[in-house]
């Protein structure tokens, strides 16, 4: 019943997120013909400096369908929306949901570790589905615009996103164990995520390392799965989850 309870607590965030991602996945595929035409003219534009370089690089990458999908979906839309969902699902865990609900769960003959663990596991499974299922729509729909996208690429990119990006879930989950409200964990984690992905991408600082791992850029460019980055992210994420459970075990309610 703890699983059912966790499902009830997270289902709307999950279902709405899934619906939105499915729509954007379709959008990515069906936008291709129009974007392809645009790209042809963009490379001719001569914009100065860093910005100009970025625009030209983007256009280059998106020349191929595979590049286009990687750039639009795995490096922008999916990463951004999925990360937000990871933070949303991680916030308001056992406790912040409402201290009324927390007291009831705590009065059951179930250890706090189990209650928190089930909650985390449910959310993580939902996040895996959110990374995989909308992405699977792409190889499914690509023939409709006369293109082909490999299942292997889909698998590597979505799983990389899940493994690396779950760090943000874990951070939100840990902060929820420490703070009692819904907003602080969410806002803090969003701030961290923003600094890691968007800002880093624009400015080209080492920060963008996180974004590169989540979008499996090295795999896209040269077939190298970013094992080190994934391993690191997983370790940090697991440590934070472990810390979260430890906090839940020890604190007063």
């Amino acid at each position: 019943m703890l699983w059912y309870k966790a499902w009830l607590e997270t289902r709307w965030r999950f279902l709405i997120g899934l619906a939105v991602l499915l729509v954007f996945a379709c959008g990515a595929v069906f936008d291709y013909p129009a974007i392809a035409r645009l790209n042809a003219s963009v490379s001719a534009i001569d914009a100065p400096g860093n910005l100009g370089r970025l625009i030209r690089e983007a256009a280059e990458t998106q020349r191929t369908y595979r590049g286009f999908i990687w750039f639009q979906w795995y490096r922008q839309n999916l990463v951004q929306m999925w990360t937000i969902l990871a933070v949303l699902l991680g916030s308001g865990g056992l406790l912040a949901a409402s201290s009324r609900a927390a007291l009831f769960a705590l009065s059951m003959p179930a250890s706090r570790t189990r209650v928190a663990g089930v909650r985390a596991a449910t959310a993580l499974m939902e996040l895996l589905v959110l990374a995989l299922v909308p992405s699977l729509l792409i190889p499914l729909l690509s023939p409709a615009v006369g293109q082909h996208y490999g299942l292997g690429d889909t698998a590597v990119h979505s799983v990389s996103l899940f493994l690396a990006g779950s760090v943000f879930f874990s951070l939100a989950f840990l902060l929820s164990a420490v703070f009692d409200d819904f907003w602080r964990p969410m806002l803090i984690t969003c701030a961290v995520a923003l600094s890691q992905t968007l800002v880093g991408a624009l400015v080209g600082l080492p920060f963008s390392g996180m974004l590169r791992v989540m979008s499996a850029e090295s795999y896209f460019r040269s077939g190298q799965v970013p094992w080190v980055g994934l391993g690191l992210a997983l370790t940090v994420g697991l440590l934070m989850l472990y810390a979260a459970v430890a906090v839940v075990e020890r604190r007063d309610f």
Binding site: R100, A101, L103, S107
Partner: peptide, 24 residues
């Protein structure tokens, strides 16, 4: 913690705000 789980197998608690899961 372990003893407390065992205790709760035989205890029923009704808190001041009547804690329940509002979404159920």
């Amino acid at each position: 913690s372990t003893a407390s789980v065992e205790i709760r197998r035989d205890v029923a608690f009704v808190g001041e705000d009547k804690p329940l899961f509002d979404y159920m």
